[in-house]
């Protein structure tokens, strides 16, 4: 009896240990596999032609996933010795990770507030951030538009189930700004923590309308219909990008930022619905 119990305990530990090994090696493989997969085409001569090589890690806001994935691929094609590792999450999550020591070479934020947090932490030099894109809110409705929403004021009407972002997150702050600009007060059925959750409630038909970014509407394709409204100009979200101060590969980081803010970057971002950042707004 005792023996079987003990054997079982040993087995359990063995399983736990094996699981831990799998998880750990999984992490290691995940970290190493990605750059390795992108490097094979690296011919040493052409790499030295541009003078750039090595790995950079770019921490970018979740709303940049489509555009930055495309831009990183093009950047790697242009500089065969370089590989770009992308990490996408909410801007505030990324700030927490970088503050806690995550290795990042470039940070692209969906708002200036989160960029300012890293400047305060001295992880980014004060004059480094450059604005590279803007984003505005749009009304998203299901393709059938069951409540016939046409203007921002319609969202405040009784019987229209509207979902918005909570005031604590950037898209919610923008929502509050357009509400006050329009002089209306929307009584939402839900205040979500992320713009993705707002969009999900609209695409699933749970909500009659939601306030999301124009780029989310573009990315959602036929799943939702976007309705632009003039008050959106009152809350323009500016996206800054900057190299992280103690990044391992500053040359490549700067080159990547130049690529994003350059003509190719502007074209890709523009196609996704982002607006161009006014050059004079950069600090």
């Amino acid at each position: 009896m005792l023996r079987t119990t003990r054997r079982r305990a040993v087995l359990a530990f063995a399983v736990l240990g094996a699981a831990a090994v799998v998880v750990l090696s999984g992490c290691a493989a995940g970290g190493a596999a990605q750059p390795a997969a992108t490097v094979p085409g690296s011919e040493a001569p052409s790499a030295s032609a541009s003078g750039l090589d090595g790995l950079i890690t770019v921490f970018a806001a979740a709303s940049l996933k489509g555009t930055f994935t495309e831009l990183a691929d093009e950047f790697e094609a242009e500089h065969p010795g370089v590989s770009v590792e992308l990490v996408f999450a909410g801007s505030s999550d990324l700030v927490t990770q970088i503050t806690e020591g995550a290795p990042a070479d470039v940070f692209a934020s969906a708002d200036e507030r989160n960029m300012a947090k890293l400047v305060d932490e001295a992880l980014i030099t004060p004059d480094a951030p450059v604005d590279f894109a803007t984003n505005v809110l749009q009304i998203a409705v299901p393709p059938t538009n069951p409540q016939g929403v046409e203007t921002l004021a319609d969202l405040a009407a009784a019987g229209v189930a509207t979902v918005v972002c909570a005031p604590q997150v950037p898209c919610g702050a923008a929502t509050a700004a357009v509400e006050s600009a329009a002089g209306i007060d929307i009584a939402p059925v839900s205040e979500e923590s992320s713009v993705t959750d707002v969009l999900g409630k609209v695409t699933s038909g749970e909500a009659d309308a939601g306030l999301v970014y124009v780029t989310d509407v573009t990315a959602a394709g036929d799943a939702v219909r976007g309705i632009a409204f003039p008050e959106s100009a009152e809350a323009v979200n500016v996206y800054p990008i900057a190299p992280v101060a103690d990044g391992r590969n500053p040359e490549v980081a700067v080159a990547f930022i130049d690529f994003v803010t350059g003509s190719r970057g502007r074209a890709v971002l523009g196609a996704a619905g982002f607006g161009a950042a006014g050059t004079e707004t950069a600090p």
């Binding site: 909410g90 505030s92 979902v163 909570a166 604590q168 997150v169 939402p188 059925v189 839900s190 205040e191 979500e192 923590s193 959750d197 409630k201 749970e206």
Partner: peptide, 20 residues
């Protein structure tokens, strides 16, 4: 369920939101 104070925003959802 969504997230609205007093209606659907339970403690874990409040924690998630406050963290922002």
């Amino acid at each position: 369920a969504g997230s609205l104070q007093g209606v659907t925003r339970t403690l874990p959802l409040e924690i998630y939101l406050q963290r922002e």
